[in-house]
Simulated scan of single mutants.
Amino acid sequence: MPPADAPTHHRPCPAPEAGPGAEDTLELRLTDELLALLGEEAPGPRCGPQGGPRNAGLLDRPAEWKPVTTRAGVFQLVPVRLERDLALISRWMNDPAVAAFWELAGAETVTAGHLTPQLDGDGRSVPCLGVLSGVPMSYWEIYRADLDPLARHCGVRPHDTGIHLLIGDADQRGHGIGTTLLRAVSELVLDNRPRCTRVVAEPDLRNTPSVSAFLGAGFRYSAEVELPDKRAALMVRDRAHRDQL
């Protein structure tokens, strides 16, 4: 069984293809009208000045979030740049402990195929390196849960923000670092996304150590959710609960 701060998520569900009845699904389309209703800016150039996804405003620009001090060291989310980070992330994806959850083992082209749609997309998911004390040591995806296929399978609220995580190096696992960083990143989301009232995650229900890590980071178990690739534990960290502490 993987340690509590092992990778916490299978690879994300792909966006559904259009087909008969597609208009009846719950997926939210990023039309100009929807963006206006959400108070977002319309999509801009393919990449921003820092190389992140276009329309980074959908997630309030993670590239601009400041470093935070944790008990494990100074931590910062740094948006992925394919030419700089592909080899490292691919190496992590080929670690058996990671591959068991993310299912992205193989050549660098496999990892590139996972990253590129996010980097070329509309900004609803931003892949990031987690840099601890100056060393890249984890991979994160910060995503809009209300604009994700997850919304088909469980109740989400406008601006709910999701987290996917893997700890890249084996020597960083099993020491509580994952719990520390989950708390730090959920704090970053709540501090930098004022319209977000909840941070959510969906680790595999069988991965009890990962669920425990989220609980230790201030999340609560909300529901059991049947997703296309797994049965998940929907973990939620509420802004209202945090503000009451």
Rank of each mutant, 00 (worst) to 15 (best):
L58W: 13
Q76F: 02
L37G: 12
R46I: 04
T69W: 11
A42I: 06
Q50Y: 07
E33V: 07
P53N: 05
G39A: 08
L58G: 12
F75E: 04
G52N: 09
E64T: 12
A72T: 09
D60E: 12
P79A: 00
D95W: 09
V74D: 04
T69H: 14
V68N: 03
E33M: 08
L34C: 03
F75I: 03
N94R: 12
T69A: 14
L104P: 05
G57F: 09
S90V: 11
A42V: 13
W102C: 06
A36L: 11
E41Q: 13
E33S: 14
T70D: 05
R81Q: 05
D32L: 15
T70P: 15
E103K: 15
W102K: 06
G52L: 05
N55S: 10
L38Y: 14
A63I: 01
F75Q: 04
L77F: 04
L88T: 11
L37T: 14
E40G: 08
E64M: 09
P96C: 05
L58I: 15
Q76N: 05
R54Q: 11
D95H: 11
D32M: 10
P45N: 10
D85W: 03
N55C: 08
W92G: 01
A42S: 14
L88P: 04
R61K: 07
R71V: 14
S90C: 15
R81S: 04
F101I: 00
V80A: 01
A99R: 08
V80L: 01
F75V: 06
P45D: 10
R84N: 11
A72K: 13
P67C: 04
G51H: 01
G48T: 07
A87I: 04
A99M: 06
T70C: 09
I89L: 05
P96V: 04
L35G: 08
P67S: 06
N94W: 07
A97N: 10
P43C: 09
D32Q: 14
Q76P: 00
G48R: 04
D60L: 07
P53K: 01
R71Q: 14
P43G: 11
D95Y: 08
L88Y: 05
G57D: 09
A100S: 13
R54P: 15
L82C: 13
P43Y: 04
A72C: 13
A42C: 07
